[in-house]
């Protein structure tokens, strides 16, 4: 399962970087979306994939049974998802405004600040 996830993450990263290197700002934002998802999956996978063992305390011993899933990684991902959501909402507005102001969606035309 981990190997499959690793391949999926690799493909996600590759796809996101490919999209970010395109000239259209819409594709750029799609690349950013894929990128944040890929990073979240890295946390998810590297913290260990455990299936069918939710981190619940045992009523009698007040201790989690051995081999439960690590809940912290999921808390990290949850935080990261919320942050990514905010940031991506901003970038969508940004490309909309940029398109209005610059009158193009072509990144190659946006080089006024690079001279």
């Amino acid at each position: 399962m981990s190997a499959l996830m690793a391949v999926a993450i690799g493909i996600l990263f590759a796809a996101s970087i490919y999209m970010m290197l395109r000239r259209s700002i819409v594709k750029l934002v799609m690349g950013l979306i894929l990128l944040s998802n890929a990073a979240n999956l890295v946390i998810f996978t590297s913290a260990g994939l455990t299936s069918g063992a939710p981190p619940l305390l045992d009523a009698a011993t007040k201790q989690p049974p051995a081999g439960v899933a690590d809940p912290l990684a999921q808390a990290l991902i949850l935080t990261a998802i919320v942050i990514a959501f905010g940031v991506l909402a901003f970038s969508v507005v940004l490309i909309h405004r940029a398109n209005e102001v610059v009158q193009t969606d072509d990144l190659d035309q946006m080089k006024e600040t690079d001279q």
Partner: peptide, 29 residues
């Protein structure tokens, strides 16, 4: 100029954040 600068600034900083986040994930693992 601000819009053009901001697109570059936002993109590269989000990329850096994603890298940071992945590094955190692997380190935690």
């Amino acid at each position: 100029a601000q819009m053009e600068g901001a697109i570059k600034y936002v993109t590269i900083n989000l990329f850096s954040s994603a890298l940071f986040l992945s590094a955190i994930g692997i380190l935690y693992g």
